[in-house]
Design a binder for these strands. Structure first.
Lengths: 171, 171
DNA sequence: GATGCATAATATCAGTCCGATATATAAATG
DNA sequence: CATTTATATATCGGACTGATATTATGCATC
């Protein structure tokens, strides 16, 4: 991220919460230690800007060595793409749940997707133009996958509810 | 998983590599400590079956308390669904990569998806009938999302390659 | 005028997770 | 005959992360 310009940990967090949120979340507990370690390795430099009231702003900037390191890292031919879904894990055992409980879970998932869709629209409206094709590709990927998930859930939730109703009918 | 019947850590691993692979991967480093901890808490019981040549098979079985605990856990109204994609992270910076490098990454991702699709087909052919609706829902979810990803990548890879070609043309 | 909440900003830490590695044998494959 | 795959368990260092702490401003609400 620093390759696109200077930023503080706080600035980066905002990016992780918006454009990166759908595929790579990171909290302060990951960001600050990462910045410290990068600085130690000389891959970024740090400039402290004093402020009144607030902690000093630490603005990080990528170094020439950091840029070389980034380019090397981008040579990985098979980067991973992992999903870790408690949601799907739960749905495997929907037949052990109350039907209302299944409904709640499904709706909360649809809400999350809705929130992502709004975020995508915001991003598209604001900063899309100034982005390289890669960012457009990644945003589009998020939109396509979100849409597919939403469609699938709406069209197939009956699979889950039939089962729980069968159970509650036989109970 | 043990709610569906007794199993050893090794058995569970096979499930994590097949039906669960697309949304919840787990290695031995997670499975064995988890089983030990569950046994300590009395949520599962363990029966050691001696074998010649191989280490003793430890077959775990869920207890009544374990079942109660599972049902409580299934009451979580908003289970999470996370994606962590080095692939998409790299694609954000495609403009810094060689076009051939981008091609390689894209193809390796498509290969992964292809492997999943084959796995889905296998599962559907073999053990689909004996499954509850929840498992069918989850498998279908994986298929739908995989198909959407494949389609999106094929239809939009030009977004990534245009950029790198522009770069290599101006270099 | 006070209370509370959001924003700005950094930082740490305990607990969890996981990839890599180790060990031992049988069976299948080339 | 050699090598790979399958059976089976186990550990550990390093990475990751959610929760928590600190301090101050500004803005809305009661």
């Amino acid at each position: 991220m620093l390759n696109d310009g200077k930023a503080s940990g706080y600035d980066l967090k905002k990016q992780f919460e918006s454009s990166f949120a759908h595929f790579f979340a990171a909290g302060f507990g990951s960001i600050y230690p990462a910045l410290s370690s990068l600085a130690e390795q000389g891959l970024v430099s740090c400039q402290e800007i004093p402020q009144q009231g607030k902690p000093d702003r630490k603005v990080y900037e990528i170094t020439a060595e950091g840029r070389r390191y980034l380019l090397k890292a981008l040579e990985n031919p098979a980067p991973c793409h992992k999903v870790r879904s408690e949601f799907l894990a739960m749905m495997c055992f929907a037949h052990l749940m109350q039907p209302e409980s299944v409904e709640t879970v499904l709706n909360s998932r649809l809400d999350d997707i809705e929130r992502f869709k709004k975020m995508f629209a915001d991003i598209e409206a604001n900063c899309m133009h100034e982005w390289p094709g890669g960012m457009k590709f990644v945003l589009g990927f998020g939109k396509a996958v979100s849409a597919a998930m939403e469609k699938y859930i709406c069209e197939n939730r009956y699979l889950l509810l039939e089962e729980t109703q069968k159970q509650s009918a036989s109970a």
